[in-house]
């Protein structure tokens, strides 16, 4: 009888949170390892290509928007707009003088006129740059069907 009349045992509801810190630390480690400082945040529509090579991490960036606005960054600081083609030559020459084997990345909008890209390429040739990367996105089978 005493068992039947006995008070119901209270079950405390709790969520086990001890491993939360571990999970969070793992996530932090992931973000720290994959984090890379983006020196150029210019919004451009990159062209799509099949062939793509990985760009070196310390490369210098030259971005060209659809309207032909050029921004440059040596890879260490944030990109800054340049006013004339001569400034691109000066910038590239300075970068090459500091690190002769520096790679240059051209991040140009796919709809920009080729004359803007041509000027930048000419500046890089004048500055005696060695390797140039033309930044692109991965082309897929769907893109060719369009």
């Amino acid at each position: 009888m005493s068992i039947l009349r006995g008070r119901a045992r209270k079950v405390e509801a709790s969520i086990f949170t001890a491993s939360m810190a571990d999970i969070v630390f793992l996530l932090i480690v992931f973000f720290v390892l994959t984090y890379n400082v983006q020196v150029d945040r210019t919004q451009v529509n990159l062209p799509k290509t099949w062939v793509r090579k990985t760009v070196p991490k310390d490369a210098a960036y030259i971005s060209i928007t659809k309207d032909g606005v050029i921004r440059v960054s040596s890879g260490k600081e944030m990109s800054l707009p340049v006013g004339s083609d001569e400034e691109v030559v000066t910038f590239a020459s300075n970068v090459v003088a500091e690190t002769p084997n520096k790679s240059f990345v051209i991040k140009a909008d796919k709809d920009t006129k080729y004359e803007h890209v041509d000027k930048v390429l000419d500046a890089l040739k004048q500055a005696k740059a060695r390797v140039i990367y033309l930044l692109s996105e991965q082309k897929t089978q769907d893109d060719t069907k369009q």
Partner: peptide
């Protein structure tokens, strides 16, 4: 810290066509 890294890390395109001059 997680929120900070998530907000500041951007998935950037890091591949392209290369050519040597």
């Amino acid at each position: 810290l997680i929120i900070y890294f998530m907000v500041t890390s951007v998935f950037s395109a890091t591949r392209g066509l290369d050519f040597a001059l």
